[in-house]
């Protein structure tokens, strides 16, 4: 049993590219659900918008990656308006239903044969999507690997910039939630009529939160497309959104650092159990499982862990239990 392999692999994934992508999606959900109380079950649609904006602009239209990022932001904003205008005046559950349906609609549309020329159909878009970004890589050309973390030169550059993007959005959220703007959205989360009665345009604030959360999610998709140099329609399944919610709840909703802690923990558990089980089966410690079972077992473990967390620490790792207790009037 190679313990050091298990540890290095786990650590590499815990702060790797996937963790960054999910972290960004979860920061977006934190703005929408954690602070404003909006149930967006279609965050993956915003992530897909970011990825496809990059793929289509760079690969299909052969334009610059920087323009593509701008397009990603605009498309995410348009989606938020499209989803928000009809639903945000209604009860909270309408947004939940519409967003989850919309996210599947997006996936089925982008993979359909009808738009194959532009969106690549079921094969998606593959090619030098992130080249403009990778050309800026300042790491020495003969870079091999860091001591413990086994990233390639290209991945390491994505990881560095990715965490900087996470830090910037975290700072933005931190500034917002401690401002009068944050006070209003927290009021809306609890009782929007109370906020309306004080003369605040609640609809506009919900819309702003939906757009901001969606744009941050789209950055997850942008990072994804650049890092993988590929956009695959079937990676944008509803599970993605639910994993992002898991991350948010792990770290604690309505906590500024919740998504970061949650994402790292999520990948420690997921990668750790995966690598450990794989090694244990190889070493003959476990004989009732096949190596192919590992992928599923780790999600079973993750689910059990989440249930245990909700029972014993419903506020998440960072949350404040007193705030939850106050809900019961």
């Amino acid at each position: 049993m190679d313990w050091s392999f298990v540890l290095t692999q786990t650590l590499t994934q815990a702060i790797g590219i996937q963790a960054i992508i999910y972290c960004l999606a979860a920061i977006g959900l934190n703005v929408q659900f954690g602070y404003t109380g909006l149930l967006n079950f279609g965050q993956v649609a915003f992530v897909a918008a970011g990825s496809y904006a990059v793929g289509v602009i760079v690969l299909t239209f052969d334009l610059s990656l920087w323009l593509a990022i701008l397009v990603g932001i605009v498309v995410a904003t348009i989606i938020a308006l499209l989803l928000g205008i009809p639903t945000l005046r209604l009860r909270a559950d309408y947004l939940a239903i519409v967003t989850i349906a919309f996210s599947e609609l997006v996936r089925l549309t982008v993979r359909s044969i009808a738009f194959k020329d532009v969106l690549g159909g079921a094969q998606g878009l593959n090619g030098k999507i992130g080249q403009d970004f990778h050309d800026t890589n300042p790491l020495p050309a003969d870079f091999q690997s860091l001591p413990v973390l086994s990233w390639t030169r290209q991945d390491l550059w994505v990881v560095i910039v990715g965490w900087i993007v996470v830090a910037l959005f975290t700072l933005l959220v931190w500034l917002l939630v401690r401002s009068p703007w944050g006070r209003i959205v927290k009021g809306i989360r609890e009782d929007e009529n109370a906020v309306v009665s004080l003369g605040k345009n609640v609809f506009a604030y919900k819309m702003q939160a939906l757009i901001l959360g969606g744009v941050i999610g789209a950055f997850g998709g942008i990072v994804w497309a650049i890092a993988k140099q590929s956009v695959q329609p079937d990676t944008f399944r509803p599970e993605f959104t639910f994993f992002a919610y898991t991350i948010l709840l792990l770290g604690g909703a309505a906590r500024v650092f919740g998504p970061i802690v949650g994402a790292i923990l999520f990948w420690i558990v997921l990668a750790g159990t995966g690598e450990f089980l794989g090694q244990a089966i190889q070493a003959g410690w476990i004989d009732f499982l096949q190596p192919t079972d590992v992928g599923n077992i780790r999600f079973v473990l993750m689910g059990s862990g989440l249930i245990a967390l909700m029972v014993f620490r419903p506020q998440g790792i960072f949350g404040d239990r007193r705030e939850l207790a106050l809900d019961a009037k």
Partner: peptide, 24 residues
């Protein structure tokens, strides 16, 4: 409709009109 998960002072602040910091 007191906002129970906010402090008393934050409830009060929410009432004030024309706040610059309420703009995004």
């Amino acid at each position: 409709k007191a906002l129970s998960r906010m402090t008393v002072i934050d409830n009060m602040r929410l009432g004030a009109k024309h706040q610059t910091g309420e703009r995004f």
